[in-house]
Nucleic acid binder design. Structure first.
Length: 874
RNA sequence: GCCCGAGUGGCGGAAUGGCAGACGCGGCGGUCUCAAAAACCGUUGCCGCAAGGCGUGCGAGUUCAACUCUCGCCUCGGGCACCA
């Protein structure tokens, strides 16, 4: 035996794995009879070297990959880089270099670190999104989506980050701030490219049910984000201008008749989830910045009021967004609409809490049933007629059978938004009211019969804004021609290559590269210019997992046969921060590409593991806080195997991990112990069998243990194989390592026996088990022991060794300790045979408790085999 | 406000409704050593000399038996939030 020198061993085997390409996927016929397994970790963004979060993510994926390989799967385990994006530009500006130089240098750094950690990637399948071989196909996919009507350019109010000088998708605005630089996001009206993810809103929601292997938390977050609401559209007729009282209060039915009969004005449709409260609608609201509000008030004395609300909304947004209770602002427009259900004439106001881009931008206000409308009505002194009441409300007994509106104001301090009984609601009075209630359905039916409304569904999800006014991204393959308009770059001209003559350090953009910008129209040949926006980096990461299956394809982004045989990803692993962003976009891409006929599955990731963060003293590690533990420092001191094992052992993978240097010492001690034991176990003089494969032989033959100590060690080996196998399958890596520690403790006891009393075959078997089982976590050390202690074929890697099997009989103990309870309280523990019949266990328990049972009446005896006997007596 | 999680020794954490605290860290005691480190051995939930008692955020309930299931709270973490 020689001392465990992690640095030397790790360098040696990393070189071996690299030259022998042990982790490359065998695509040959030999692999065809093996089941496929696609293990994937979210690829890194190359911003500097790897941090502990990466190490955790990739260690988990590596253990799963190695384990599955040993179990006989054909494992696809690739890596790549999400290489476009703003940080590269910012770094380039800061350092006076180029985004490409910075990015590719970081990729080299990370590549070395990944190799230094011993991760078993198929390096032949690496994908880098900033390389034309990859982004070409991103452009191609854009064109497919365009042809399907899923990509379009349109004018819209969009999120604009003034610091990063670009627009942002809804998903990239967190609490009103830019997800990257945290500056306040503004609204701007711009013409931008969108992917129509909303076309898939319903399917994206429904198919969450097809993902039992995803954490409920993530599914819940996506469901919230998609935000489906069921309800109805209701048509309100706008009264002719000049009708109504100037106060802006509810008018009479006669007024309404007058307004409607004299001139059929336009219809304004609203969306509501509470059609059952329609009778309680006492005013009507428009978003202040809506075109309709401007149109209705233009040239009237009310225009100034509306303008004021718009100003308030703009100026106060920063502060008010932070507050829990935002003050509401509104103004009367001078106009009225007619409530279709009772023909009451209600005033139209603008209110800053009405969103332009949800529903129709217009709202029927029911102050008695909606908190916001209630607050607005109180502030502007508008009527609050009660229409849905809780049955224990004192008002209810008074109004239970009242069909017409009598009570115009509720005495409450807040709105009642719950389920209750409908009152003052004409023919619907007495029905149950509430979301999706019988009353709501009855009102929808009534409206639908008369053509005044219809059931409807709304989503919070917005289309995905993919334009970015930045250089370092995938160019949008579109040319603008004065004659032909918007023209796609012909497929044979792809990729549109990102030019390298743009100097971002001088604030240049793609427009400043004439060679890029000035171009002939592909249709008419006349001078035209290219789109200068690039695509959101999330478009690059929405399909990289497909490209891995067919990285070198020069005809297509991937062959259908390749993705259909490898996908969906069996296990995806990454951080919770992508619960909505990347994971929602990727699901959308998969569905869109399926509809384009490019693949034939519905969901990209069957199982998802969201790993917890690595923290130091309760805080997230970050360079700016200066509380970073650098992986390279830990590797330099202890080696990669120790770091990997430590990170697996300290916490279950989905929980946050608190960094602790003492724990690191502990795991290091454990690995040294394993090393020492494996060499001690195999140090016995061997029976001169140089040619055979002793390890495999030991496993096949098993041992023939004689002594109780032999039987105990053998049992422990089988028990631990069973446990470690089950634990890794459930990703309980921490308890898998605990079980291996237990095995080393058993081996330590066995090794205390004098040499003559130990069975060399059994010792080899124990060494064999320990080495194989630790190999997914500590692969370098395992590989060294596999060869130098267990005598494996010098050309073969432990990567390809089969996972050890256990004998179910031997995995169970012969003797077990059972608890003897009297009335549920433990009184004694006794050793019995594991297969002791219940009747005998009962007898043994009664004997044990004989003195305590004296003078008592036996009521009942419960025997749980192998665990306990509970005697009930009094 | 709404929706998810999570609360177990000094610490990280274990427990298909069946012996709470596996495993590790730390602590204490010891062997070896001139000494220390390393290594190894023993011990370690709390109170108690002991017998024994108390213990999984709090309060009820179901059960022979509850960390685990049910109901009602408390605290912490996360997500969403004027979505009609």
């Amino acid at each position: 035996m020689y001392p465990y020198d992690a640095q030397a061993i790790e360098a040696k085997w990393q070189a071996f794995w690299s030259t022998h390409q042990v982790n490359d996927l065998e695509n040959g016929p030999a692999a065809e009879d093996k089941p496929k397994y696609y293990a994937l970790e979210m690829f890194p963004y190359p911003s500097g070297d790897l941090h502990m979060g990466h190490v955790r993510n990739y260690t988990i994926g590596d253990v799963i990959s190695r384990f599955k390989r040993m179990q006989g799967y054909n494992v696809l385990h690739p890596i790549g880089w999400d290489a476009f994006g703003l940080p590269a530009e910012n770094a380039a500006i800061k350092q006076g270099s180029s985004p490409a130089a910075w990015t590719f240098a970081n990729i080299e750094t990370q590549k070395k670190s990944l190799a230094r950690l011993g991760f078993s990637y198929d390096w032949d399948r690496t994908v880098v999104t900033a390389e034309p071989e990859y982004y070409r196909w991103g452009q191609w996919i854009f064109e497919q989506l365009y042809k399907m009507g899923l990509a379009e350019k349109r004018e819209s109010a969009v999120n604009w980050c003034p610091v990063d000088q670009t627009v942002l998708a809804n998903e990239q605005v967190i609490d009103g701030k830019c997800w990257r630089c945290h500056s306040e996001v503004e609204k701007r009206d711009l013409s931008q490219w969108f992917f129509k993810i909303t076309d898939y809103a319903q399917e994206l929601l429904d198919d969450l049910d097809k993902l039992p292997g995803w954490p409920t938390r993530v599914k819940q977050m996506q469901a919230n984000w998609i935000g489906r609401s069921e309800g109805a559209e209701v048509d309100f007729r706008l009264c002719r201008a000049g009708v109504g009282d100037p106060e802006g209060h509810v008018g009479s039915a006669a007024d309404a008749d007058d307004a409607l009969s004299s001139e059929a004005e336009r219809t304004i449709t609203v969306f509501t989830t509470r059609p059952d409260t329609l009778f309680g609608c006492s005013f009507f609201l428009l978003a202040p910045e809506s075109a309709l509000a401007a149109e209705l008030t233009e040239g009237t004395p009310y225009a100034a009021g509306v303008q004021e609300v718009i100003e308030i909304a703009k100026s106060a947004s920063a502060i008010e967004r932070q507050g829990t209770e935002r003050d509401k602002h509104g103004a009367f427009t001078g106009r009225y609409v007619v409530n279709p259900v009772n023909r009451r004439k209600v005033p139209v106001w603008v209110a800053d809490y009405v969103l332009t881009d949800y529903g129709t931008g217009a709202v029927m206000a029911v102050p008695s049933g909606d908190e916001r409308d209630f607050a607005f009505a109180r502030k502007y002194d508008l009527e609050i007629p009660p229409v849905v009441l809780a049955e224990d409300d004192p008002l209810y007994s008074e109004l239970a059978s009242e069909a017409s509106l009598k009570v115009m104001d509720v005495p409450w301090v807040e709105a009642f938004a719950g389920s209750g009984k409908m009152v003052q609601s004409g023919p619907f009075t007495g029905l149950t009211g509430g979301k999706n209630s019988e009353g709501a359905k009855a009102v929808i039916d009534w409206l639908a019969e008369r053509g005044l409304g219809r059931s409807s569904v709304n989503f919070k999800l917005r289309d995905w804004l993919i334009s970015r006014q930045r250089y370092w991204g995938n160019p949008i393959p579109v040319i603008y021609c004065d004659h032909c308009g918007e023209v796609l770059v012909p497929e044979q001209d792809l990729p549109v290559v990102l030019p390298d003559d743009v100097d971002v350090t001088r604030g240049q953009t793609l427009k400043d590269s004439p060679a890029f910008y000035e171009v002939a129209c592909p249709k008419c040949g006349k001078p035209a210019h290219r789109e200068t926006d690039t695509m959101d980096t999330f478009t690059c990461s929405s399909w990289y997992y497909l490209r891995y299956t067919d990285v070198h394809n020069a005809q297509l982004p991937f062959a259908k046969s390749a993705v259909d045989s490898w996908l969906p990803v069996d296990q995806y692993i990454g951080g919770i921060e992508h619960a909505i962003l990347h994971l929602l976009y990727s699901r959308f891409f998969t569905k869109a590409l399926r509809d384009a006929g490019l693949l034939s599955f519905d969901e990209p990731f069957t199982n998802l593991l969201t790993q917890g963060m690595v923290k130091l003293k309760g805080e997230t590690m970050s360079k700016s806080k200066g509380n970073v533990v650098a992986p390279e420092d830990v590797i330099a001191r202890y080696g990669a195997d120790t770091l990997r094992s430590y990170i697996l052992f300290m916490a279950p993978p989905d929980k946050d991990l608190e960094w602790n240097n003492d724990g690191l010492e502990g795991i290091s001690r454990f690995l040294h112990k394993v090393w020492k034991q494996v060499y001690n176990l195999t140090a016995e003089p061997q029976n001169d069998s140089p040619d055979s494969k002793p390890a495999a032989q030991a496993a096949a033959n098993g041992a023939d243990p004689q002594s109780p100590a032999d039987r105990e060690l053998e049992h422990q080996c089988h028990r631990v194989i069973k446990k470690v196998t089950a634990d890794i399958e459930r990703f309980n890596f921490n308890t898998a390592i605990s079980a291996l520690m237990e095995l080393t403790n058993s081996i330590a006891s066995y090794l205390k026996l004098p040499e003559g009393q130990r069975d060399p075959e059994l010792e080899r078997f124990a060494a064999f088990c320990l080495t194989l089982m630790i190999s997914p976590m500590a692969p370098h050390m395992a590989e060294e022991m596999w060869h130098s202690a267990l005598g494996a074929d010098p050309e073969e890697s432990i990567v390809h060794a089969p996972w050890p099997a256990y004998d179910p009989d031997k995995a169970e103990a012969d003797q077990v300790e059972i608890a003897i309870q009297l009335n549920g309280k433990i009184k004694a523990r006794i050793m019995v045979a594991a297969d002791l019949p219940d009747a005998d266990a009962e007898t043994a328990a009664k004997e044990t408790l004989s003195t305590q049972l004296e003078g008592k009446t036996l009521r009942k005896v419960i025997v749980v085999p192998g665990r306990l006997v509970n005697v009930i007596a009094n």
